[in-house]
Computed example of a mutant assay.
Amino acid sequence: MNTTFIAMGIALLAGVGLVVTIGVVSLLSGGLHFLFARPKLSILKTANGESGFAFSFKWNSSREPAKFDNIRIRLFNPFGSPTQVDLTRSYDTATSTFARDLDFGEDLKNLMNAEGIANASVEVEVMSSKEGIAHHFMFKGQKFLDLYKSATVLAETFNEENALNYPKPVFTNPKRSFIADALPVSNKALKISSNPEFAGEFAGAGGSGEAAKENFAVSKVWIEDGCIVCDACEAIFPEVFEVTDDTCIIRPGAPLDNGLLVEEAADACPVEVIKFAKA
Rank of each mutant, 00 (worst) to 15 (best):
T172L: 14
T88I: 05
K67C: 11
E263N: 08
K58G: 05
I6R: 11
I192G: 00
F144P: 02
P65F: 07
N113P: 03
G52N: 08
A232W: 00
K149E: 13
Y148R: 06
C227H: 01
F104C: 13
I249A: 13
P174E: 10
A182E: 01
A182F: 00
A134L: 12
R89Q: 12
L35R: 12
P252L: 15
R100G: 01
N119R: 11
D103Y: 11
G49F: 11
D86C: 10
V16Q: 05
P82E: 12
I228R: 00
P255N: 14
R38L: 11
L111C: 07
G80N: 09
P238Y: 14
A268H: 04
S81V: 15
L108P: 07
E161S: 08
S150I: 11
E50A: 15
A266D: 03
E201H: 01
I249M: 11
R251C: 09
K168R: 14
D92T: 07
W59M: 06
R72F: 07
T172I: 15
E106Q: 13
A235Q: 08
A118G: 13
V25D: 05
S42M: 12
P167D: 14
D257R: 12
P238R: 03
Y166K: 10
F76G: 03
G200S: 02
L190N: 00
N195G: 10
P169H: 13
G204P: 01
G15R: 10
S219F: 06
D107G: 11
I179F: 12
V19Q: 04
L75D: 04
F198L: 07
A212F: 02
L102C: 01
D86S: 15
V243N: 02
A11V: 09
A266P: 02
N173F: 14
L35V: 14
F137D: 06
P270V: 00
F53R: 02
S194R: 06
D146K: 11
L154S: 09
N187H: 09
F57D: 09
K188M: 03
L27F: 14
K143G: 00
S194Q: 08
